[in-house]
Simulated scan of single mutants.
Amino acid sequence: MVALAVKDELIEILALVKDPEIPVLSIADLGIIRRVEEGENGHPVVVITPTYSGCPATEVIEADIASMLKLHGVPDFEIKTELSPAWTTDWITAEGRRKLKEYGIAPPANRGKVALLGHEEVSCPQCNSNRTEQVSEFGSTACKAQYKCLDCLEPFDYFKCV
């Protein structure tokens, strides 16, 4: 079994891997790292869940995980993708949500926070106004929508709630 100290060290190393689409976030901030376990050969197995099925960044993330582990002296490991249960924005850490907002991307709304007509209430990451409207279902990536603030008039991406 992978010793707890080793497992913690590996998780710290994995937390250095940045999301290729939002470089202020680590894969740990996003909740992509499911667990680290021992494989049949005694080497660590890193189990991840991509944010979206078919996410184009998944292969890059796997390559970045491999590079980071090798850089830190972990030559033998396996990376497994686990799709069930599916990733949810609930797995984004509080730190990750803070980083998104500071970067100018509205973090996903709480699931209970829904405005009229079933639309999510989205706060502007610039001025915190809730007077915002969706401009496009898709923003700079498929996981984000484009919004604009009706108070400060700034456009911004919103990380969609999944």
Results as ranks from 00 to 15, higher is better:
residue 1 M to C: 09
residue 1 M to S: 14
residue 2 V to S: 09
residue 4 L to K: 13
residue 4 L to I: 10
residue 5 A to L: 12
residue 10 L to M: 06
residue 13 I to P: 05
residue 15 A to Q: 09
residue 16 L to V: 10
residue 16 L to C: 10
residue 16 L to E: 12
residue 17 V to Q: 00
residue 18 K to V: 04
residue 19 D to M: 01
residue 21 E to H: 01
residue 25 L to C: 10
residue 25 L to R: 02
residue 26 S to V: 02
residue 27 I to L: 03
residue 28 A to H: 14
residue 28 A to D: 13
residue 32 I to S: 04
residue 33 I to H: 03
residue 34 R to S: 08
residue 41 N to W: 07
residue 42 G to D: 02
residue 42 G to C: 05
residue 43 H to I: 14
residue 46 V to M: 01
residue 47 V to G: 09
residue 47 V to K: 07
residue 48 I to L: 10
residue 51 T to Q: 03
residue 52 Y to Q: 13
residue 54 G to R: 02
residue 54 G to V: 02
residue 54 G to N: 05
residue 54 G to M: 03
residue 59 E to R: 00
residue 59 E to S: 13
residue 59 E to I: 11
residue 59 E to Y: 07
residue 60 V to I: 15
residue 61 I to S: 07
residue 62 E to W: 11
residue 62 E to T: 15
residue 67 S to A: 15
residue 67 S to K: 12
residue 68 M to G: 06
residue 68 M to K: 14
residue 73 G to I: 06
residue 74 V to G: 00
residue 75 P to E: 07
residue 76 D to C: 06
residue 76 D to K: 09
residue 78 E to C: 00
residue 78 E to S: 06
residue 79 I to R: 03
residue 79 I to V: 13
residue 80 K to L: 12
residue 80 K to I: 11
residue 82 E to F: 11
residue 85 P to A: 09
residue 85 P to N: 08
residue 87 W to R: 02
residue 87 W to S: 04
residue 87 W to E: 00
residue 88 T to A: 08
residue 89 T to A: 09
residue 91 W to P: 06
residue 91 W to L: 15
residue 92 I to C: 07
residue 93 T to N: 06
residue 93 T to M: 04
residue 96 G to R: 00
residue 96 G to H: 00
residue 97 R to E: 08
residue 100 L to G: 03
residue 100 L to M: 11
residue 100 L to T: 02
residue 101 K to C: 06
residue 101 K to M: 10
residue 103 Y to M: 09
residue 103 Y to V: 08
residue 104 G to K: 01
residue 106 A to I: 01
residue 109 A to F: 04
residue 109 A to Q: 03
residue 111 R to Q: 05
residue 111 R to K: 13
residue 112 G to W: 14
residue 113 K to G: 11
residue 115 A to D: 13
residue 115 A to C: 11
residue 116 L to M: 08
residue 118 G to Q: 05
residue 119 H to E: 13
residue 121 E to I: 11
residue 122 V to N: 06
residue 123 S to A: 15
residue 124 C to Q: 06
residue 125 P to T: 09
residue 127 C to H: 08
residue 127 C to D: 09
residue 128 N to L: 13
residue 129 S to P: 03
residue 129 S to H: 07
residue 130 N to R: 14
residue 130 N to K: 15
residue 130 N to P: 07
residue 131 R to I: 05
residue 132 T to S: 05
residue 132 T to Q: 05
residue 132 T to L: 02
residue 132 T to R: 01
residue 132 T to Y: 03
residue 133 E to K: 05
residue 134 Q to C: 10
residue 134 Q to R: 10
residue 134 Q to S: 07
residue 135 V to Q: 09
residue 136 S to M: 12
residue 137 E to W: 08
residue 138 F to C: 08
residue 139 G to W: 00
residue 142 A to R: 11
residue 142 A to S: 13
residue 144 K to M: 00
residue 145 A to T: 01
residue 148 K to H: 13
residue 148 K to A: 11
residue 150 L to D: 07
residue 151 D to T: 08
residue 152 C to L: 04
residue 153 L to Y: 14
residue 153 L to G: 13
residue 154 E to M: 13
residue 156 F to I: 00
residue 156 F to N: 03
residue 157 D to Y: 07
residue 157 D to A: 14
residue 157 D to K: 07
residue 159 F to P: 01
residue 159 F to R: 00
residue 159 F to L: 04
residue 160 K to C: 04
residue 162 V to E: 00
